[in-house]
Amino acid sequence: MLPARSLLIHDADPVVAHRVAADVDGSVRPSVAALVEDADAVVVATPATERFGLLVAAMTEGLPVFCEKPLAAGLDEARELAEAARRTGARVQVGFHRRFDPDYRRLHQLVGSGAAGRVIMIRGTAFDRQPPDEGYQRTSGDIFTDCLIHDIDAARWIAHDEVVAVQAEAHELPGGPTGGREIGVGAAVLTFSGGAIAVLTASRLNPLGYDHRMEVLGTRLSVAAGLNAMTPLRALQATRLPGTRLNTTDRSSEALTYAGFTERFAAAYRAEMRAFLDMATDGGPSPCSPDDAVRAQEIAATATAATRAGVRTPVTPSRDGALTS
C-alpha cells in the first residue's frame, strides 16, 4: 500500500467513484473543486480528452500533480500545460512508467555511465496481446500517440540524446481472432543527433501475450530490457538434434507469458507512484517533466505526419531540449 494518509476520489460517473473508493478505502468528493480543495496532491488518470481543465485547476492551486500520458489529447494543449507548469511552478510528473522499470533503468544507467560505449542502435518492441476496445481508441489517439509514445520517451531517455528526424509507417490490418476488431500496426525510425538510430515497432495483437521490451546495441555491449522467461517469444532452432522435430503449434507455455501491461510493468507502476509521493512530500524535481512529455508527443506527432507524407521528416526543435535524468 502506498504511504498516503487518505485517498480522495472523484469521477465523472459517481457509481465508478464510489466503487473505486470502496476498493482503496477512500472517500468520494462530488466535484473537481471539492477534491482540489481537500487534496495535498492529485493523480489525474482520466481520458486524455478530459485532462486539460483538471490539470490547470490542480496546478493553479499549487498542488503536486501526477498525470497519465499523454499530457493532453492534442499537442497544442500539451504545450499550454507545460507552459502553465513553468508559470505556476507546479511540480508535475507524467506517467511514462518505463523510466521506473528495473531493466529500463539499468539500460539508462549503462548508457549514461559509458559502459555500453557509444550507442549505435536501439530497437523497441511494443506488441499488445489484443487490440483495445473501441471506446478506449476513440479518446486515446493513434498508435504513435497512445502506444509507441512510451517507446519514444524510453528511447530518448535511454540514449541520453535528442531525436532530430523521423520516418514512420502505420495502418490497420483486417481483424483476425479478435472479435472482428482491426489490428493496428506501426513502425517508426528515429534518428538521434549523435547518429544512433532507434527502430520502434508496434502491433495491437500478439497471440502469445504482451511483449514490450527494448534493446541497445553499443560499441561495447548489446543488451535487452524485458527479455526473460516470460517474454511471449519462441525461438525456432534451425539446427535440431537428431530425432527431434520442430513444433510450432504447442501452446502449453502460453500461461507463463505476460498477459498485459499491469503484469509486465507492475514493479514500475509501484516505483513510479512512490517517486511521485516523494516528489510531492520532499519537493524534489519531477522524474518525468511536462517538457519531456511534450517532446515525446512532438515526436509522436511527427511520426504521424511522416506516415502521411511518406518521407523522412525533421522534428521541430523543442523549447527545452533538456532531458530529465
Score class of each variant (00 low, 15 high):
A293Y: 00
A280F: 00
C288E: 01
D292Q: 07
L241R: 14
L236Y: 15
F265V: 13
S253E: 08
L241W: 14
D278Y: 06
E254Y: 09
A271E: 02
L277T: 00
A225G: 08
A259L: 15
V294E: 03
D291S: 02
S286F: 09
A224C: 09
L256I: 10
A225T: 06
N228T: 02
E298P: 01
A225M: 04
D278S: 10
L236P: 10
A238V: 10
G283E: 14
M273Q: 07
R245K: 08
G260L: 07
A293R: 01
A255C: 11
M230Y: 15
P242M: 07
M230E: 14
A280P: 00
P287G: 07
A275P: 00
P232G: 09
A268K: 02
M279T: 01
R245H: 11
R295N: 07
P232N: 11
R295T: 02
R274I: 00
R295W: 06
A271V: 01
S286G: 11
M279S: 00
T257P: 09
L256E: 12
S289K: 02
R295D: 06
A238W: 09
A224W: 05
M273V: 04
T239E: 13
R270G: 13
E263Q: 04
N228A: 06
A235C: 14
A235L: 15
L246P: 06
M230K: 15
E254L: 15
A268W: 00
P242R: 12
A268C: 07
D291A: 10
D278G: 03
F276V: 08
R270I: 08
P290C: 14
N247S: 12
Q237H: 13
D291V: 02
Q297G: 05
P290F: 10
E272W: 07
A293E: 00
D292E: 13
T239M: 12
L256W: 12
E298K: 07
P287L: 04
D282S: 15
S286W: 01
L277G: 03
R264V: 09
D291I: 08
T231W: 04
G260D: 07
A238C: 05
M273K: 06
T257Y: 10
F261T: 10
A235F: 14
T262E: 09
N247T: 06
A268T: 02
